[in-house]
Amino acid sequence: MRSATESIKMSYPEGFSMGTITSFKKNYKYLLPAIPMLLFLIIFFVYPSVIMVKYSFNKSLLYGEIENTFTFENYINFFTDPFYLKVVWRSFVLGFWVTAITIPFGYVLAYAMWTSKGLKRKLLYFCILLPLFTNLVIRLYGWRILLSPMGPINGILKNLGFTDSGFSMIYTKPAVVIGLVSECAPYYVLILFSVLTLVNPRYIDAAYDLGAGKIKTFFQIIWPLSLPGVVSGGMLTFIWSFGAFATPTILGKPIHWTPAIHAERQILSIRDWPFGTAIGMSLVVIVLVILFIQSRLTPKVHSQRT
């Protein structure tokens, strides 16, 4: 008797070689329904991005005219101008502060969600999703009311006798940072939570069972296992703060403006499209570099549930 593998390896009956070709086609046939989506992205995402890249190498003339050449001038202008270098640096610092605050505070919320059940978990979900989906402008408007000299915080401080004239809290860096924290935290929490749900809760029981205390259990078991979520959520927070648009314009002064805002100014107000797109592209490149570094650093997420 031949073994099973041997009998498979024998020469195939007539027509099999053609069969391999049809099976190759069949392998990709399943992608047909994805074509509309891919076409949409190619027409409205990839192609416009390509045009944008092309623009960033063009030269702008007076009155919004554009000369169709190939020049690095816009990029050189952006990366050699001390003003814009300072903008990039300040945005980095801004991103750092936002990330440093979001990571511990968001962690607590994600952890609370992970350990809760039923209605409490649903409620916490709602507390994250409501701000997540609510128009950012409205949330920033809420912060403006809160932080304004006539607002509730100053009002309460005055009543308590801490101040007579009120603190000027709006248009400051802490205001921008706290606004960005409230903008990024929901995403960070959801990413971290999805990683936490992959951690098998039995590990905690096992650790308790072996006599580890709460704090020890957390730092030796849960924290390392959730680290991928902290890193990718933290990176997202950093990137979004770095590329933030609305929060610095509404809660900050021009000194807090990010490259994204300068890009928008150049395009919509100054109408220097080549320079604006060059700023935009630089932003994208910086983001991609950060993402690349992250992909090198991040440990892979493994599901500990089987």
């Binding site: 992205l41 409205f44 995402f45 045009i51 944008m52 590329g243 648009f245 994204a260 797109t277 983001v287």
Partner: peptide
Amino acid sequence: ISSFITWPIMMPPVIIGIALLIF
């Protein structure tokens, strides 16, 4: 392909705005 489809969410919206504006 799945990750390609989710690329636009990674992009800062300002960039999408600019690119689409030009196109």
